[in-house]
Nucleic acid binder design. Structure first.
Lengths: 208, 208
DNA sequence: CCGTTCTTCGAATGGCTGTTCTGATAATGT
DNA sequence: ACATTATCAGAACAGCCATTCGAAGAACGG
């Protein structure tokens, strides 16, 4: 139960926070590649030029590390999404904007996403992870809120509203597993592609 | 390197095979819930009324258990898919049938799927898993082979062919994470929903 | 420059868990 | 019923790894 005491002096606290962020980010990278359980604290520490014990100055436990990774992932996403939804706009435009934001976030936090998905069985159970589950829930509700009116207006390419949501979640989350930074498609193009699918955008006519 | 010697006597071999299958299936169930690394062989053994050591009569190692889970998942899927593709039919009908088959398989092997996804980082690297990676590759190529002509005919709801494939993979694989046996939608309905999205099926007109 | 607060190392520890091994019991086929 | 093969429990082992701790060195504030 190491308290990982934070510095009080302003100069040092700043450094400490930056360092902690780096530790968490490094953890995300290593966990994504080697897996959470199979990564030893020693490996992790080595990857950031620390001795094993040094990690515990910034983090209370390995499990808390996982928690911080989830926070680094969900916190900014929810924040950005809230800002976007606060602006007034048509649901279809907002949905497109939100999916763009989302895909950009996923591609910028691939490691975090991969860890988040791999450790689903941990996050899904236990009181400790309630907050993170709620974050995810809130985000899904934002999507739901945009999809509902579109469904009511018959604008979706699929009959079932909830299936549309599930499909969207699947497409975007899966992006973390194939996206590569210098790939053919930009995150925005990918996002637009997903939204096009959702809208059942009628493609070019079939007959010559 | 326990050889997990199989019985030679026919009566016993049959029982052995059935038992091994049960062990693997039980492993899939427990791994899906508790996670591969966090599940001890003892827990697993207990869940099937065996002592820890007894497992090793049927399986050489914990890692091989993972391998067998992947085989139980991919083997039948590829087999069924091959049969389906052998029949002559239009690409759109075949794609629809293949996605149905696939979604049914995913929903019937939810645990296997969840383990497969959770342990992605293991399966992705190392010579030992090459065969399994190839199986997955082959399946994706089947999908690709059906999507290509549809894309050429302008039948897809999205401009990019590869994005369509990625989207489909994401949707279907994600199904394992929310599907519940007595849910509102049947696997076939879910599959049709996905295909509708892919085809950008024009929904009911917007205006009243 | 001093006292104080941070940071980091390196070693020790304590528990856990995959795997092996042995012997006993049960099933088989003849 | 007998010889042989299968099945399995239970204990023991061996290695690993998260975490703790104390001391040494570095950075700060005045």
């Amino acid at each position: 139960m190491a308290a990982t005491t934070r510095p009080t002096r302003p100069r040092l606290r700043e450094r400490y926070d930056r360092r902690q962020d780096a530790v968490v980010r490094a953890a995300a990278r290593v966990f994504a590649h080697r897996g959470y359980d199979q990564t030893t604290i020693q490996e992790l520490a080595a990857s950031i030029d620390l001795a094993a014990g040094g990690i515990y100055h910034y983090v209370g436990s390995k499990e808390q590390l996982l928690e911080l990774i989830c926070d680094q992932l969900m916190g900014p996403l929810l924040e950005r999404a809230r800002v976007l939804l606060a602006e007034a706009a048509e649901p279809d435009a907002q949905l497109r904007a939100l999916v763009r934001l989302w895909v950009e976030h996923v591609t910028e936090h691939r490691d975090h996403m991969l860890v988040f998905q791999q450790e689903r069985h941990v996050i899904e159970r236990g009181a400790r992870w309630r907050r993170i589950r709620e974050d995810r829930k809130r985000f899904e509700q934002m999507l739901e809120g945009l999809i509902a009116p579109l469904h009511a207006a018959g604008r979706l390419g699929v009959a079932d509203e909830r299936l549309a949501l599930a499909a969207l979640l699947g497409m975007v989350n899966h992006t973390a597993q194939w996206y590569r930074p210098r790939g053919r498609l930009s995150p925005a193009e990918i996002a637009d592609g997903y939204v096009d699918l959702l809208f059942g955008a009628p493609r070019a006519p079939v007959d010559p």
